Amino acid sequence: MNSGGKTVIKPFRIDIPQADLDDLNDRLARTRWPDEVADAGWDYGFPLARLRELAEHWRSGYDWRAHEAELNRLPHFTTEIDGQNIHFVHVRSSNPDALALVLTHGWPGSFLEFLDVIEPLSRDFHLVIPSIPGFGFSGPTHERGWDIVRVARAWAELMHRLGYERYGAQGGDFGAGISLALGAVAPERVVGVHVNYLPTRPDPDAGLELSGSDEVRLAKVKQLMANRPPYQALQALTPQTIGYALTDSPVGQLVWIAERFAQWTDPRTPISDERMLTDISLYWLTATAASSARLTYEAARRIERCPVPVGVAVFAHDITQSVRPLAERLYDIRHWSEFDRGGHFAAMEVPELLAADVRGFFLDDSTVRGAGLVERESAR
């Protein structure tokens, strides 16, 4: 946004109206619960007893104000890009010559995903952590077309406004796609892209001989492609329809996201109920269930190949695990790490592993490190 020829970046403070918190409490207290088949377990979906436990904690044990105060210790800002309000956290390293990194979350995550990696990564990097348009304090969106490429172009503009001429990008889930798209739309600016989620589709024409473990990974991908998860189908085909239920019912919003956390995390590295409820509260209190779901609808657009160096971290309990020979056909892979623990939400589950891998890619890889250093030296 321009005002008098100047780009406006405004400090932002989280301050949810008390009336919204009271309304949430009232709705939770009046939940109309379905019945459940005896000994159903997970056979029919999320277990009733566990959901009741989470809902009651959200209503009577969870303290949004305490988490809000903690979050407000971070430096939050907003700006308008391409007609859309953009919220972001901007943490500068004590090293003025540090490389900048833009960290991008996915669904059903938020900027909260990166809370536990801010401290270790900010020792070596300036961090920019935006909320995707349509998510949280960057939502809702009000027009068509906010796909991965458009988000990436917004990130390129954001980094330009902040004065970063060269920077890295990191993300998982949609954040991985956005980070790779950023490398495609701004290759002269992006020194490298690190992802902790990189789906690799079968390519019968590749003529590759895959290892037994790679064949197992590929079989899992084929199974997912043949049996599209229900949540994904609904968000990809009718995000507005499911949005009504999630925006009107806090328990609906709760189970929609809690199921993903339950199924996509490594049982050995669980995410606390408090952290999960803060993430879910963010969706509920900003009424962004529908607008965040629209990204799944919009995301089908193909993007240009990312020409910059790519680093990949593969976690054992993720939705799928990348097949390196297939990934190398599409990307300039310079760094590849395999971890025997951790799941889809790596920044929340195993922040120490992810932070170390990000640091290793951007600071230890000679090509990536050199690209960043040369530009920062020339900018002096």
Results as ranks from 00 to 15, higher is better:
Leu21His: 11
Ala29Phe: 11
Glu36Gln: 14
Glu36Asp: 07
Tyr44Pro: 01
Ala49Trp: 00
Arg50His: 09
Glu53His: 12
Ala55Ile: 12
Gly61Asn: 13
Glu68Ser: 06
Thr79Glu: 06
Gln84Asn: 07
Ile86Phe: 01
Ile86Asn: 02
Phe88Gly: 08
Ser93Gly: 07
Leu101Gln: 04
Val102Tyr: 03
Ser110Arg: 00
Phe111Asn: 08
Phe114Trp: 15
Glu119Trp: 06
Glu119Gly: 14
Ile129Asp: 03
Gly134Leu: 07
Phe135Ser: 03
Gly139Cys: 11
Pro140Arg: 06
Gly145Asn: 09
Ile148Glu: 05
Tyr164Leu: 03
Glu165Ala: 15
Gly168Trp: 10
Ala181Trp: 05
Leu182Tyr: 15
Val193Ser: 14
His194Gly: 00
Ala206Tyr: 12
Arg217Pro: 00
Ala219His: 03
Gln223Arg: 09
Asn227Val: 09
Gln232Arg: 04
Gln235Gly: 00
Leu237Thr: 15
Thr238Asp: 08
Gly243Asp: 00
Thr247Trp: 04
Pro250His: 10
Gln253Met: 15
Ile257Ser: 00
Thr265Asp: 01
Thr269Lys: 06
Ser281Tyr: 01
Ala287Asp: 11
Ala289His: 05
Leu295Trp: 14
Thr296Lys: 06
Thr296Gln: 10
Ala299Val: 08
Pro307Tyr: 11
Val308Asp: 05
Phe315Asn: 04
Phe315Ala: 06
Asp318Trp: 01
Ile319Asp: 12
Ser322Gly: 02
Val323Ile: 07
Val323Gly: 06
Val350Asn: 00
Pro351Cys: 01
Phe362Trp: 07
Phe362Cys: 11
Ser366Ala: 12
Val368Pro: 01
Arg376Leu: 14
